[in-house]
């Protein structure tokens, strides 16, 4: 509880200068994103479970481009905003980021490279803790090639092609999604033929995935997608020296011609 009250104060103060602050709200017996516009609403401010807020912020900003908005962002949400800004999906000029650090318990359920924001804001509510390593990644690296194939075949055979991983992802913005193109992913086949759907999705997260885990959290078949994308993120760092969501100036590797790389 020691984050909630300080956060309420900070948001209340921000509302004096902003048109609205996007955060989570207790309502209807559950928690959902909400645009707080008046201090009176802050009684319902909530912290967990988290939602893909950058997507919602983009939605509101597109409808009201001149508005001054705030967002209560965790580490993953900040990284998401940075990657979206690089691709002109969001305008960071009109946005104030209010930082929220994850607790040890939250970081344990939801491991990521950095459980607190540090680039778009220096004001962070809550204690900055050490990142928790994803055990599944280490476990997976120890598997042989045959074990890996068998593992993913089994996992992907559970897929019901609900597109939740794509829809919930804050980085997926393509109006015409490759995964909906019948040429690559045939219509009417459940589970989608191995390995097209998932490896195409994995390829498209290169330089974009910030490790927010929304894909895995919204998968009805409990496929460990975040682990696969975390493995790929490590490769991207090694191969291109690109830390996804870590630097506002660094350009995404796949779109950059090689002579412009330093």
């Amino acid at each position: 509880m020691k984050r909630l009250e300080p956060l309420k104060k900070v948001v209340a103060e921000a509302l004096g200068e902003l048109d609205g602050v996007l955060a989570l709200r207790n309502a209807w017996g559950g928690v959902a994103p909400h645009l707080f516009c008046r201090e009176g609403e802050l009684d319902g401010l909530a912290l967990w479970p988290k939602y893909p807020l950058p997507r919602t912020l983009q939605l509101i900003q597109k409808a009201h481009p001149e508005s001054r908005l705030g967002i209560v962002a965790r580490g993953c949400e900040e990284r998401g905003l940075i990657e979206m800004a690089k691709r002109n999906q969001i305008d960071l000029e009109g946005i104030r980021v209010i930082g929220l650090a994850c607790t040890a318990e939250e970081a344990r359920i939801c491991p990521c490279p950095k459980p607190y924001p540090s680039i778009l804001t220096h004001m962070v509510i809550g204690e900055r803790i050490e990142p928790v390593a994803d055990e599944l990644v280490e476990e997976f690296l120890a598997k042989s090639s045959e074990e890996r194939l068998e593992f993913w075949k089994r996992q992907f055979s559970k897929c019901i092609k609900c597109y939740a991983c794509r829809t919930a992802c804050p980085q997926c913005f393509c109006p015409e999604c490759t995964l909906e193109d019948a040429l690559w992913v045939e219509i009417g086949r459940i589970p989608p033929p191995f390995p097209s759907f998932h490896l195409v999705r994995a390829m498209h997260t290169v330089g974009k995935c910030v490790g927010c885990r929304e894909c895995e959290l919204s998968c009805p078949a409990d496929i460990p997608l975040a682990t696969l994308y975390a493995l790929i993120r490590r490769e991207v760092e090694e191969m291109f020296g690109y830390e996804t969501g870590g630097d506002l100036e660094a350009q995404p590797p796949l779109v950059l011609p090689m002579e412009l790389e330093s």
Binding site: G29, G30, V31, A32, P33, P49, Y51, I160, K161, C162, Y163, A164, A168, L217, S218, C219, P220
Partner: peptide, 15 residues
């Protein structure tokens, strides 16, 4: 958006 605390859907939805 899925309802993450809902006892039936637990934050997941089909297409």
């Amino acid at each position: 958006l899925p309802a993450k605390t809902h006892p039936v859907s637990e934050g997941k939805l089909c297409i």
